[in-house]
Design a protein around this nucleic acid. Structure first.
Lengths: 203, 203
DNA sequence: TTCAATTGCAACTAATCAGTTGGAATTGAC
DNA sequence: GTCAATTCCAACTGATTAGTTGCAATTGAA
């Protein structure tokens, strides 16, 4: 039976994803990752390098996967809202993503935007998003996309604020995910329509 | 010359605010807080207790201060947009706030919503925000307030995403803060109008 | 079978960290 | 001036942590 190096790497990457999502870079523990993966700690260093290199690998893998998993399709404000809704759904299933994105923002800051491949990927994404809303310019598209990503990823991370502001004020929690998803989708539709109207008024 | 205990506490609290804002709970170092404040480390424990107690104190102090510093005023969608703009401005000056809010979300999670006084404070805030937009119900108000807080606080924390999506796609950075502030203010106005229209359509 | 490369093991290492301690210095009441 | 309480000091402590090490076991090519 041969060594299954790829499987070992996968186990470690999965364990690292969970650990970094839960604790961030500073709070994560290499021992825990190894134990959780059922792999000797020394293998981590052999395959992935030091702690922050493993963190970078986890981020690159997970954030890239998200962009591939939720494609843009259709045209018009409803398509924009649909995209937001699907992104929201994806994050419910892959709950590590929003946390990793904010850990990245907090722990790596501006340095996180220095990757040329990633810059290109996002440029293409913004361009593609613009095509969903005929008539708007690239800046409008990029700003709206930033709004979508902020709202969708921010919601689970600021769950305590949802509890304080919405649940606390109105009393009955109900299905919070469904309600918030609904609000975000409709908000995106409204903002997309407004963006188009604004672009038309300027033409 | 008497001991100035209150001054020592203030120095420590300021240093702790900066440290926790920069590094979060797991990444902050008590030695650094003490050094930065020019105070002996042992004083921290005497005055504030252990590390996570100090963190809680910093959070309570800073987040409470924010709510007091940016009051709600006026009525109508423009008032909602104005509030968002003033909140945005405040966070530019007090750059620790957004980061602390997201550290809290990531590092303390749902437990952060367990404080009775804070629940009450947010309930009152949501109620007051509802009064800005006559006709809308409390749930609409709370959801829109959550959207505002998410966008305003999320922007600095996701600065790398701004760079990737907006700057990367459109080329010239310009004054990003002003541009993003403008987008948020107008978005809030649009969403506030839509919320009122929706409430009216249901009446 | 041999041999070099790689994986696997678990103990080890040096540094770091939150928290503590004993004693000196200071304060303010009496 | 005395005295108890408090602040200040800086060294200490024990636990934890990222990373390393020496050696055994395994793999696959020749």
């Amino acid at each position: 039976m041969a060594w299954d190096t790829e499987r070992t790497k996968r186990l470690l990457l999965e364990a690292a994803t969970a650990e970094f999502s839960e604790h961030g870079l500073a709070g994560a523990r290499m021992d825990r990752i190894a134990t959780s993966a059922g792999v000797n700690k020394e293998r981590i260093y052999q395959y992935f390098g030091k702690k922050d290199e493993l963190f970078a690998t986890v981020l690159a893998t997970q954030l890239r996967e998200t962009m591939d998993a939720v494609p843009l399709s259709g045209t018009g404000p409803a398509a924009a809202g649909d995209y937001a809704g699907r992104l929201f759904d994806h994050h419910i299933i892959q709950s590590t993503i929003p946390r990793l994105l904010f850990w990245e923002g907090l722990e790596r800051g501006a340095g996180a935007a220095a990757d040329a491949a990633r810059i290109e990927y996002h440029r293409v994404k913004a361009e593609r998003f613009r095509e969903l809303l005929p008539g708007i310019d690239l800046e409008q598209a990029a700003e709206l996309l930033l709004t979508i990503v902020t709202l969708v990823n921010g919601w689970p991370v600021l769950g305590h604020l949802d509890t304080l502001l919405v649940v606390g004020a109105t009393g009955a929690p109900g299905d919070r995910a469904a309600a918030r998803r609904n609000v975000i989708v409709r908000s995106v539709e409204v903002l997309a329509s407004a963006a188009q109207a604004e672009a038309a008024a300027r033409a």
